[in-house]
Design a protein around this nucleic acid. Structure first.
Lengths: 354, 354
DNA sequence: TTGAAAGCGCTAACAG
DNA sequence: CTGTTAGCGCTTTCAA
């Protein structure tokens, strides 16, 4: 093989740590170990099939050469890439985005442990599905993780129709017929946790500031507050408000509620709204955590920075990632296994505001 | 070809939008269009070589079949994956992380336009280079983008020694001999911009609160403040402080500076420190923006949420991504072209605090 | 247990 | 301008 002459010549003068111009192949390892290529392949993929001494010799050659199987070749052969695609939206400022970023970190970490990598892609400006379509048809990824299952977007049903493997972070709100695996965080449980926390501290008039009614997630979070209040036989009349997710809205809403309903505590659908509440309290010379308690949602970057620190509901995104990867592994297993949806419970990060 | 019989049978009863069990190949398109496989390949990669009518026929077949070249096969053949690897650190809370997340978004967006995808990977807990090594040896990515070029980490020199194509977001602080392409944001220019902004407003005693001396980035940012002050012949004696990057440190440092040196404005190395300054002002009944001006750095999520809004230096991460991708394209071009480092200038987002 | 042969789907080189 | 041939590096039959 003249190729090997070239390769040997190319490798000789180089530093041990430097990668040769063209990486070693299965054949190189085989020659070095004095076995056939398939034996090397088996050493990697089915070590049990080899005699221990053969395995050791092959392993030695692999280490010496710094061999790692060529992905493209392996992908072509096995029809799988060990890549998981995930679309990320534009870098809009805001809490929702930050939550997704936190999730991406967890996902990358978890997929690594499962032998997968995460391929990020951006939405095409025009068609929301083109990115998925291309990756799917070119068999560039084995599966997708989708995240925004609300706002009635077409991803889930589109992928399902295509029989593309995917796991959703977010329950299929509007699709009871959906059969795909999903993982979600129980927002209602989170706000119930927050509300109970306040009730345990002796508050009886706990107000809610949430999002507009068309937000499924917002209504879900609101229901947890309602449930906790009613669970103790407390009235919620006049204690709720539905507004835009901005600081100004939270500020206005809390001012209004304080005037009209005299709550001693607020549970909010987001940290943004909670910051608005803190501002109202400051406006009025009230001390958060002493005079009025406040709890936010998402435990965002701002929560520890407010004065006092903002108590906030925290989504267990690390656990979400773990469950997503589990579902992914089931989906890509032989035979494919799709379990039921997984619902996780958030925790409460208690700080000075409550 | 018995395979085609199977395929046709499989495709017939399916919905047009549903992906056939096994995606169409070049051969399928070729047969459909009545040309050879090579012609289809040319239609995709070198359309100029085809006669217009042939091209149209092939294109038609491609569209009808929903054909997209198999990535693995193409990667194997061309020895390139059109994937760019980027390592992300653990999801620690904090501004630095948020900046990186913003950058990732921009990078994904920009690479998409260049026909690349971003492959994210996590650091192995033990060895910082294993992730790079594996991806490199398995030829899973064409190049890397590295981000933390400070803290004397080994990535840059390691990759350079391996002759692995990579672009750094961050100048090679400690390696004047480095020859790799890099893109960075001129922190000194940012703080100079901030300082000049304050000086233009009539301030003469502008204080600096920055990081400890071992931070290259911190010292760079500090130098911009120094330069701007000295540029107007103003003294900086007693006006600077170097502390940890925490709210508490910013609060303490600003309190101390106010007592000792009576500054009327603060420029900070981070938004975190600036939040600390705001807290001191609130403690003392001073109004930020009216009594004392404050400017932060990074224009993080908290900046618009503080009361009043925090003026902050903003890194042009979108532009960084564009330059990084440009450098990447040069690096991966034929022949590879490596240009000089690119230094970008930040902007100032002015809010109520100044 | 190990080895030989075949082929995944594509593109580069050349021949027509 | 189009078609033929070869082979990228790997894994999966099937034999030995």
């Amino acid at each position: 093989m003249s190729r090997d002459v070239t390769r040997a010549a190319a490798r000789l003068p180089s530093l041990p740590a430097r990668l040769p111009a063209t990486p070693p192949t299965l054949a190189d390892v085989a020659e070095r170990a004095g076995v056939s290529r398939q034996t090397v392949s088996n050493a990697i993929n089915n070590p049990d099939l080899l005699r221990p001494d053969t395995l050791a010799r092959v392993q030695g050659a692999i280490d010496e050469l710094g061999y790692s199987p060529n992905r493209a070749a392996r992908n072509l052969r096995t029809r799988s890439s060990h890549l998981v695609g995930m679309r990320i939206g534009p870098a809009q400022e805001g809490t929702a985005n930050a939550t997704m970023d936190r999730f991406v970190h967890s996902l990358v970490e978890t997929t690594r442990e499962a032998g997968y990598h995460v391929l990020l892609f951006a939405a095409e400006p025009d068609d929301p599905m083109t990115g998925y379509d291309d990756l799917l048809r070119s068999t560039a990824v084995d599966a997708f993780v989708i995240t925004d299952t609300y706002l009635g977007n077409p991803q889930a049903s589109w992928l399902e129709q295509r029989r593309a493997p995917f796991v959703a972070f977010g329950r299929p709100w509007d699709q009871p017929e959906a059969r795909h695996p999903w993982v979600d965080v129980d927002g209602a449980a989170g706000t119930a946790l927050a509300t109970d926390h306040l009730l345990d501290k002796g508050h009886t008039r706990v107000a809610w500031i949430g999002w507009r009614k068309d937000s499924r997630i917002g209504e879900d979070r609101r229901s947890g507050w309602l449930r906790a209040m009613h669970g103790r036989g407390l009235s919620t009349t006049g204690l709720a408000s539905r507004v835009e997710d901005t600081v100004a809205s939270g500020r206005d809403a809390s001012a209004h509620l304080l005037d009209e309903a005299q709550p001693s505590a607020f549970v909010c659908a987001s940290d943004t709204l909670a910051v608005g509440v803190l501002r109202t309290l400051a406006d009025r010379g009230l001390v958060a955590g002493r005079d009025v308690a406040v709890v936010g949602f998402d435990d965002s970057q701002v929560a520890p920075l407010t004065q006092p620190g903002l108590t906030s509901v925290r989504q267990p995104l690390e656990d979400v990632a773990v469950e997503v990867v589990k579902a992914l592994e089931g989906l890509l297993g032989h035979p494919p296994a799709v379990g039921p949806g997984v619902m996780l419970t958030p925790t409460l990060t208690v700080r000075g505001s409550s």
